[in-house]
Write a protein that binds this DNA or RNA. Structure first.
Lengths: 215, 215, 215, 215
DNA sequence: AATGAATGAGCGTTCATTCAT
DNA sequence: AATGAATGAACGCTCATTCAT
């Protein structure tokens, strides 16, 4: 049950003009993605300039367009990498007996990943607020996680351990919303909360919300 | 306990050039604010153009600057009006005996107000994602509500009706985050959920989260 | 029977953003059209740069866009002025008894006008070769003249003074094509021919083509 | 008397880097010319991109420059092929007794050839309008045909069958201009005229213009 | 107070040509 | 000969803000 905003692989807003070919091309493209990430983290989505990205990667401005069609396009590539990182964090394939422990682990992993990538997550929020396509991308990605959460809630309800009065889909979405917004406010908008307090409180709210018995 | 993002009045990012004077001046200024609201709702914060606002208000471009110092400035004025509306909705000064009823009323009022002002709220999200000052404005405003919620939680904990293991401040923030993000996703990002289901689920999650006994 | 390529008033490819207002605005707009004409004559349609036009008019680059939406747009305005000049040249409203004299006068007027505006006509050829819209504009304009010629040919055929075997519409178009192409080659492409020889030969070819008796 | 715009072989604007050598080289070069022709027909002279030509030929971009120095250079090569086709069409070496029949045959052949190659002819018009060198190339090529026509006119005048008042050189140029412009307007600019009407009318205008007796 | 024209910095993108393999 | 990635100059257009009437 990883509370991630980035949990599935979906179509990207723009398509790269050509598939990779030579070693040199691959190296340059990777350098551009890495450079773009740094620039997006530093300047945000809107203020990031192609010229700066190219310069940061040590290539000519025009070379950017050998590998990407637009700012959208690199940003999508950067987000793909980000998603890998966020997903890797939340991986807890082994189904636990202790639900509470599972939720806590997932929440901690998510919050740690968010914290590590705060600047880029802020850029993504900006992109989503400005460009419909990135908003949809974000919604799609979180949807996968929400679906899994909803399924889990249904299961727990049937097992008699979760509040049967809750709508699983809406509840899952609400708890996911809580997690992502709190992470944003805490790490990207600099409203500091002690990390452990954050993990414990969110986990407890989560468990309480479902009325899962604890201690 | 109104779950509002907009609950206090704080200093605005920019200052208007001169205070209102003549009757005509007041009329023009009001027309500009109303026009600005329409344009911000239609185009969002970033894409709104001063020229369009002035045209919509039926005045010359230059006249805009007789009343406002900048785009920020009108937007702040528009947000002030918005805040009034959002607050007015959530006003439930009479402390209830039935906590659950109070939470439901407040949630319903907030979600109704958000729904009514969805386009403008989306513009505010955009502004907050793009301009640090609007982010802070939003945080400040929700802070007032969060503080009141936290106080209420503490009270309920002392009364033995709320989970004593919860950190009141963080919990209040988390639940507020859940409300505002759900409202945004549902109304501004067009992820439809039946209104009554939304109200009931969020209210129940809220009550459950605090472990307040129900039924 | 003026052999003009520019003889009717038809819709323009682009529309100016706003109608004229103040005296100052009118002055600036006129200055821009005059400057544009000079730049188009000097550099052709394709190589003309907005920056140069604005500089030539003595205004800032951005001011160009206060009055015109694009390069197309000014060029259309310049062509409108040009058309006036070309039309004014060919005006011979009084129907002659001597057809030959009428044709000669019209041809001379057209060739003189073309000669005077050779550089701009070359720019127009370029625009027509590059932008479908200007090609259609040119065709539309010459069509009006061709229609009048065709009508005249039909009349002369009925009067028994013109070759009845000719298709009036196609013949009119062919003779019009001959005039405009000759003018282009002679004046815009610098393939010099003595002016009087040009007038006399083209007039004689025209009259012969219709089999109108002469001398 | 073929009314061609393309009748002589003259120096090309740019020079190819190296002469053909290996079998493979020849094949690649031919593929590039064929590909270039298709691209020029599809996109016109200005919008044709080297990358597209290379891709269409199935070779790498860089390979283009192994065989051609520039876009001008390929275009010149394509025009050479075109000229062969246009000339081949108009070849009527056997001097006829029936002048009218000769003119008609030549005109028909020219118009048919133009019709077949309309897209490329339009590209050539564009190139001529944009690049002085192609304008001159076109003028040179049509000059050869014009010279032959002028000679023929002089002959006919001496034989007493053509209007002696006409300047042979200017008349030849005018009739050539008429043919090429009509072909352009009809086939490249899509101003449809029934083919047979076109041939008959142009031929009759041509004969009439010279005052050659018919029927 | 109102008008509306003028300002001008700023940036993404294209593509012919070169060059290292 | 072939490959395909790298180069970088060039230019149109927007729009918040100012300013002369």
């Amino acid at each position: 049950m990883p509370p991630s905003d980035l949990a599935s692989s979906e179509p990207a807003p723009s398509e790269p003009p050509v598939p990779r070919r030579t070693r040199r091309g691959i190296r340059t493209k990777d350098a551009l993605v890495a450079a773009a990430r740094r620039i997006f983290e530093r300047d945000g989505y809107l203020d990031a300039r192609i010229v700066d990205i190219a310069a940061e990667a040590g290539v000519a401005t025009g070379s950017f367009y050998t590998h990407f069609a637009s700012k959208d396009d690199v940003f999508t590539a950067v987000l793909a990498d980000l998603q890998d990182e966020m997903l890797h964090a939340g991986v807890s394939d082994s189904p636990r007996k202790d639900v509470g422990r599972g939720v806590e682990d997932a929440n901690r992993a998510y919050l740690e990943a968010y914290s590590r990538n705060a600047a880029l997550m802020a850029a993504m929020e900006q992109a989503a607020a400005v460009d419909r396509r990135f908003l949809e991308l974000r919604l799609q990605r979180s949807q996968a996680f929400i679906d899994r959460s909803a399924a889990a809630i249904t299961r727990l309800q049937k097992a008699g351990v979760a509040d049967p009065a809750l709508d699983p889909a809406v509840t899952a979405r609400a708890l996911s919303a809580m997690m992502s917004r709190m992470a944003y406010v805490t790490f990207a908008a600099d409203q500091p909360v002690p990390f452990e307090t954050l993990v414990q409180t969110l986990t407890r709210v989560w468990m309480n919300a479902l009325r899962i018995p604890q201690d």
